[in-house]
Design a protein around this nucleic acid. Sequence first.
RNA 1: CGGAGCGUAGCGCAGCCUGGUAGCGCACCUGCUUCGGGAGCAGGGGGUCGGAGGUUCGAAUCCUCUCGCUCCGACCA
Length: 512
Amino acid sequence: MAKCGGKSSAGARAPSSWRKYPGGGADAPGAEPPHRRQPQPAPPSCPTPPFPLGQTQRLTPTLEGPLMRLSRYFLPVLKETPAEAQIASHRLMLRAGMIKQQQAGIYSWLPMGFKVLRRIEQIVHEEQARAGHLAIQMPTLQSADLWRESGRYDGYGEEMLRITDRQGRDMLYSPTAEEMVTDIFRAHVSSYKQLPLTLYQIQWKFRDEIRPRFGVMRGREFLMKDGYNFDLSKEDALHAYNRHLVSYLRTYERMGLQAIPMRADSGPIGGDYTHEFLVLAETGESEVFYDSEITDLTFGDREIDYDDVAQCQSVLEEFTSRYARTDETHDEAAFNEVPEERRRVARGIEVGQIFYFGTQYSEALGASVQTPDGSKVPVHMGSHGIGVSRLVGALIEANHDDKGIIWPEGVTPFHVGIVNLKQGDVSCDSACEALYRAFLDHGLDPLYDDREERAGAKFATMDLIGLPWRITVGPRGIAANKVELTCRRTGESEEMPAEEAVEKIVGIYEGL
RNA sequence: CGGAGCGUAGCGCAGCCUGGUAGCGCACCUGCUUCGGGAGCAGGGGGUCGGAGGUUCGAAUCCUCUCGCUCCGACCA
């Protein structure tokens, strides 16, 4: 995204264009339809669809249904830790068979890792839709000419991967997309009446880092949600800025993460108009300084009207009123005004960033609109990024123990693991099958460990891959009509009838 | 880009210094036993020793070049 000088920040990547957003992704169940301008009254005689809307986009059974049995799945777990992995998330992602490194900073995503990536994407899409933003998809390969127009082709430096095609045309693998989205805008928008507009995509990016490390946390190829707002005035653009801050708070919280907005380095632009979102973690790359009161703030289930300027402003003020800065912008004097017992110095992982940068690109690329008085003005813009692939690493950094990953319910690749302790035993097998089908019927993703393995191996695998809930089915319990429900995070177990366990798990996920 | 290190079976490693035609653990395959926290025994399959060139009767081992990866620093979503 675009600090003005051309360096950018924010980031992560997401799987690409073929990924399906059933029902349009945006209107996920529970998400209000995106009313960007005026609410549209429903067409009077809209026929009732033959199936309940929203249901089709629940999970992905069509893609993976038959493969949720571990015996048929592809989950290449490792007992030993590959030598190159230094930090917990990298180690655990390799051991849990989520990723495979292909080159320095470039990874393949194996089924379970890819599933987590898609869960994160789904949340991002739903929250973007809620804020009224529109999903698009731009190419990863872009023409150098567009970047010459903005002046960034020569300015960007070695981080940009430059490619030449067979005709000798200069191209590049996009590290960010201000130029291209502005090109789209200028081609199709010419009136203030078409504003405000916010377009975003979830797309793979490439930055040729000198030294990739920490697995997907600092790769060269990464999946990122990058969004761009177009507004008539600075005032409107600052509302877009606030709106993004609010929607980002919601987005991270749904993933089970606390990401603290911190005043960031705005580069040559100056001003307060950029915030980074940091997840506190020992392995974070940034040193952060904050008032401990900031970590008590949660978004909760408060109602937000994203068109309400005052409300978005007040949320921003609430979440940015305490001292919270990275080492880039740290101000020792201001920090010292925080009561000593509340001063915290820690480390954080940057999982997102928002900017307002004004008319830098709209002027360079000629993106302007006509105002009511007939004059032509360049639009005010901002850009915003969420590091989707990086978030997978950050989530694990923030949620693991010595046995493995502990997924928050919001992003877990499978909602529940079913462990059959005695494969081949008729009563155990049928109890597991019944559980498995019951979860599928409720729209949940179960992972059924039906392998011919010993109990210890199955437990170790479940602990490693970190599903939040495990149901253990053994001959002992089945004789008493009981299964065991275990919480991965606390390790607590409880015996209960299978139906009750299903009910409990379903209840937990319905409450999300 | 500066400094350091490593490439030997899918993974983790030994062998290299002191050249003699490759080994261990895990994983994998077969059988038997075992079966609520990564089982035991027996048998078995799998390796252009990153690549190229050189020295030598002979190179995983010595020399040169090269490619890849990792770590520290600088940098960074």
